[in-house]
């Protein structure tokens, strides 16, 4: 498995229409992102594959890790570095059968128990959240906060990536939990200068 970077930007075209997936990828890479995660819940399969291949090529050139959200088929066909899977997606152990041991598989957790389970099922990292209030997704649950995040970090041996409402203003508080890294969406695509915002977050992460 590739060494997992600390800053992940998720491309999302549902909370904003200003940028395409590819444009977000370009800006994030300009700002020095480590991991790009392509996420689209509505696009047809053919278009998803085309988009994923475009972004994957860009990421390869720049040495950025490229992950696909939910869709193992898209990851497989586009030659992505891995997938990020939620609880209702293809199970981690099944995805591993298709992708092999060298690809990265991340699992979403909303509790200590789910994080432990993801690790047991073979996840290479845990995506945990949401930490702060966020509008990037409809959240039925309350924000978890950084104290609970610390418990998750301590409960598993794989890297934890925190997600949900994270931006320049609270990144230091998040990193204090001992978390490996963070994933960002809204704070980047809704900022005036996304590339610069990525750069600011990155500097604070690596200065920590």
């Amino acid at each position: 498995m590739k060494k997992l970077g600390r800053l992940c930007v998720i491309t999302d075209t549902s909370i904003q229409k200003k940028y395409t997936h590819f444009q977000i990828a370009l800006m994030a890479i300009k700002g020095g992102v480590d991991i790009l995660q392509f996420r689209d819940k509505h696009m047809g399969t053919a278009e998803m594959i085309d988009t994923a291949i475009q972004i994957r090529r860009l990421c390869n050139k720049k040495g950025v890790t490229f992950l696909v959200n939910d869709r193992v088929d898209i990851a497989l066909v586009s030659g992505a570095d891995g997938v990020h899977l939620g609880k209702d997606d293809i199970p981690i152990s099944e995805a591993r059968r298709l992708l092999g041991s060298r690809k990265i598989i991340g699992g979403t957790a909303h509790s200590v128990n789910e994080a432990v389970l993801c690790e047991k099922n073979g996840a290479d990292y845990i995506g945990f959240g949401h930490i702060y209030p966020t509008f990037s997704k409809l959240k039925p649950e309350k924000p978890k906060g950084v104290n609970y995040l610390r418990r998750v970090v301590q409960a598993v041996n794989v890297p934890v990536i925190a997600i949900g409402g994270i931006g320049v203003s609270n990144i230091e508080e998040v990193m204090k939990s001992g978390v490996h890294g963070v994933a960002v969406i809204g704070s980047v695509v809704k900022s005036k200068d996304p590339a610069n915002t990525v750069r600011d977050i990155r500097e604070k992460i690596y200065a920590f």
């Binding site: 399969t45 053919a46 594959i49 869709r71 088929d73 497989l76 293809i90 995805a95 059968r97």
Partner: peptide, 25 residues
């Protein structure tokens, strides 16, 4: 449409919808 599900369920093939996966893929 779903290559991953087809492979994991040992199915015999894929029916691609109008905006679905290409035969070569």
């Amino acid at each position: 449409d779903r290559l991953d599900i087809a492979l994991l369920s040992n199915s015999d093939g894929i029916h691609s919808s109008s905006n679905g996966i290409k035969a070569k893929d």
